[in-house]
């Protein structure tokens, strides 16, 4: 059992999407959608608490992996999130990523929260802070217009520097 109280929210992003909660849930949890807006990564997720969760890169390697902490369609999904593709991230504690989906008038509010269980330096958060707004905007565009946005992403320099400093 994962102690949620240990995790403190560090990054919270909110986006309004003209779609149904069910459609947004499907976009978050099925590979047909995630490959379109999440930098090409395909989600594999066991639909239950304690289930395995993986984001797989187009070349088949693991991008992110973790465990399902909450599976409440179509309202709330929470997973532990460990970045595996960057070797420098191997010793960094997993964070908790949760999505909350709420009806807000004619559209739906999607809130992404990245919470950490240690005093993570800001520079390490810069990767997520660069990536999430683009990923969420792309998800919105995909659901509203049928077309995702083009995203080209590299880990920010400051994040790589901070990871190198952590090793020492």
């Amino acid at each position: 059992m994962i102690d949620m109280a240990r995790f403190k929210p560090k990054t919270v992003y909110v986006i309004y999407i003209a779609a149904t909660p069910e459609k947004i849930w499907a976009a978050l949890t099925t590979p047909e959608f995630t490959t379109a807006y999440f930098l090409g990564a395909a989600i594999e997720i066991e639909p239950k608490e304690g289930g395995a969760f993986v984001m797989r890169k187009p070349d088949g390697t693991i991008d992110v992996s973790g465990e399902v902490v909450e599976w409440s369609p179509p309202r709330r999904l929470a997973v532990t999130w460990g970045v595996r593709w960057l070797p420098q991230m191997r010793d960094v504690p997993d964070c908790l990523v949760s999505y909350d989906i709420e009806q807000a008038g004619d559209s739906v509010r999607l809130t992404m929260t990245e919470a950490h269980q240690w005093d993570v330096p800001d520079a390490l958060l810069s990767g997520g802070r660069a990536g999430w707004p683009a990923i969420l905007s792309s998800l919105k565009s995909l659901l509203e217009t049928g077309k995702p946005l083009a995203i080209k992403m590299q880990p920010p320099r400051e994040m790589l520097d901070a990871l190198a400093a952590l090793k020492r």
């Binding site: 403190k8 929210p9 990054t11 919270v12 992003y13 909110v14 986006i15 929260t113 802070r129 707004p133 969420l136 905007s137």
Partner: peptide, 15 residues
């Protein structure tokens, strides 16, 4: 904003 216990925390949302 996020409610955490009795506190309300404010986050920059650049979306």
């Amino acid at each position: 904003t996020v409610k955490r216990g009795r506190e309300k925390l404010h986050y920059l949302n650049p979306v």
